[in-house]
């Protein structure tokens, strides 16, 4: 994780002795100046509240009364709380439903659009679901997936498939939620990949084609490797995002039926704002936070995130 390409960028400045040091110090200073505004935002609105949340997780704060210090009681309780671990399991399952399909579809759409449909119109169509907020998307699908009056079952029975329960059955609810989320986000993912594809120099393909490479060979040898920085980005952000699924669940299933969609953020929300157990909710948030850091580190390691095959 040394940032290989960035290291090389200063080769040109490599002088000797004092001169080089001064340049390097200036570069460092410039670097700090460049990140300063972002850093202020990070500290004031992310780091500071996170530290507060860590403090709150050691108290029994109920949002109304002054908090009392209770040490690590919340964490002990969490360890023994089967519902929390169930919710983690449900969330993990949701991520497994969501990420591979969304990423693969996003990539396919991006490649097809790059090859066949460069028009703005197609990209506008693909991103259209993202224009609608999660809440409204949830409501529209609630209507479409209704077992008795919805369009989807009318269509299925029309082609001879028995009606399904979708959000109303414990077996299908989580998949349905994942489906709604994929519908809304796949265009977003595709657009990110598309931006990545556009940055790949075209002459690479032309050269390969001259060498007689097939489409699939070019995809494997050129597209995929050069797309890796974007792929890393898409995977890391969408995995983190989908571990925090909340809006669609809040609108469509509220954790049901029979707790089958009680994802971890819904459980945290219930504890924080419905059960008024902010201390406990903060402790769960901290555990989720640490867990996501570990997941991301693992991903970065597996994906060799910092090297680019181009540089």
């Amino acid at each position: 994780m040394t940032g290989r390409s960035a290291d090389k960028s200063v080769n040109a400045d490599k002088g000797s002795g004092l001169f080089g040091n001064r340049l390097r110090r200036k570069e460092a200073l410039t670097g700090y100046l460049f990140i300063l505004p972002a850093l202020i935002g990070l500290i004031a609105f992310f780091a500071f509240p996170t530290i507060r949340a860590a403090q709150i997780s050691l108290t029994n704060w109920n949002l109304m009364r002054p908090a009392h210090w209770i040490g690590f009681d919340n964490y002990g309780k969490l360890w023994a709380d089967g519902k929390f671990w169930d919710s983690m399991q449900i969330t993990l399952l949701y991520v497994i439903y969501n990420i591979p399909l969304q990423t693969a579809l996003g990539l396919i759409i991006a490649v097809l659009a790059d090859r066949l449909a460069k028009s703005v119109l197609f990209r506008a169509v693909i991103i259209a679901p993202y224009l609608i907020s999660n809440v409204v998307a949830g409501l529209v699908w609630l209507l479409m997936l209704d077992p008795l009056i919805g369009l989807t079952n009318a269509f299925l029975t029309g082609i001879g498939i028995p009606p399904q329960s979708f959000l109303s059955s414990p077996d299908q609810a989580l998949i349905s939620v994942a489906g709604i989320s994929i519908w809304r986000h796949v265009g977003f993912t595709a657009l990110l990949f598309y931006a990545g594809l556009q940055s790949i120099p075209r002459d690479l393909y032309e050269a390969a084609r001259l060498d007689g490479a097939s489409e699939s060979a070019m995809f494997r040898m050129i597209t995929l490797p050069l797309l890796r920085p974007v792929m890393v980005f898409v995977l890391v952000t969408s995995v983190v995002g989908s571990f925090q699924v909340f809006d669609v669940i809040a609108v469509t299933t509220q954790g049901g039926p029979a707790n089958s969609t009680r994802a971890v953020l819904w459980y945290i929300y219930e504890n924080a704002f419905q059960f008024s157990r902010m201390g406990y909710a903060s402790a769960m948030s901290m555990v989720l936070f640490v867990f996501l850091i570990l997941v991301t580190l693992l991903q970065m390691r597996l994906l060799r995130a910092d090297s680019s095959d181009l540089g």
């Binding site: 609105f45 780091a47 924080a272 909710a281 996501l292």
Partner: peptide, 16 residues
């Protein structure tokens, strides 16, 4: 630490 900032559930951020 910037990437890590996306991993903290926003539920605990908005009150502070």
């Amino acid at each position: 630490s910037f990437i890590a900032a996306t991993m903290i559930p926003s539920i605990v951020l908005f009150i502070p």
